[in-house]
């Protein structure tokens, strides 16, 4: 991957740097909803991981094959039954959780087939989103770019909601990073952060 191409990946994926920092060379990585495979391509080229992706959409599967990525066409809503327990070091779900119906199933499945799950999502509690609601409109922003009538998102939740979700289910939050337009946020995460990136595991 050229530097320009990598820059494109990073621009399209604000969580790329964080995720790249969490994976190690030689690790097995599964990217769920891998799209055109550019994040995987980036992780393979810059971090030397062994990568596979899952994608449902025909056009994206084709694009991922063009990118030379190990893409497997399949539907995440059905879970990850085809993969074995602990088959991967990291299972990534980047900016996709909010577009899935079976939230709990997919998180459980990620922690079954992977030793760690990496999840990123747009924070509905971001101050600009709250402001939009106060002004009487559904939020539209860089992290929630769609209109209410054409959004693929079906679950709207905040960083605080997701923290509660993990705590209630005994899911260990090993690390959490929060960003606002690419800038890391160090306080008032649920108010100032537009995207949360989590490294999850099961307590040993």
């Amino acid at each position: 991957m050229t530097e320009a191409e990598l820059a494109n990946v990073i621009q399209g994926r604000p969580d790329f740097d964080v995720i790249a920092g969490w994976v190690q060379p030689g690790e097995r990585v599964l990217d769920l909803g891998c799209g055109d495979g550019s994040m995987l391509r980036g992780l393979i080229d810059t971090r030397g991981v062994l990568g596979w992706g899952v994608e449902l959409d025909d056009a994206k599967v084709l694009a991922a094959i063009r990118n030379g990525v190990n893409v497997i066409q399949g539907d995440l809503e059905g879970g990850l039954a085809d993969f074995e327990d602990g088959a991967f070091h990291h299972v990534i779900l980047s900016l996709t959780l909010q577009a899935m119906r079976h939230t709990e199933t997919i998180i459980n499945e990620m922690l079954r087939v992977g030793r760690e799950a990496v999840v990123s999502f747009p924070n509905f509690g971001y101050w600009q989103h709250r402001q939009a609601i106060l002004n009487g409109h559904m939020p539209v922003s860089e992290s929630l770019p769609h209109q209410w009538y054409n959004t693929p998102n079906v679950r709207f939740f905040t960083i605080a909601d997701f923290d509660d979700f993990c705590a209630e289910r005994g899911i260990l939050v090993r690390e959490r990073k929060v960003f606002d337009n690419g800038r890391e946020i160090t306080e008032e995460h649920n108010f100032l952060g537009s995207i949360g990136v989590y490294r999850l595991g099961r307590p040993r």
């Binding site: 062994l50 025909d58 991922a64 094959i65 990525v69 190990n70 066409q73 399949g74 085809d82 074995e84």
Partner: peptide
């Protein structure tokens, strides 16, 4: 076909899989 794919993934081998409508 998925059985073939899953065996390859298990082994850490390179595989792409498309299910054509």
């Amino acid at each position: 076909s998925r059985e073939i794919v899953d065996a390859l993934v298990h082994n850490g081998q390179d595989v792409a899989y498309a299910e054509i409508k």
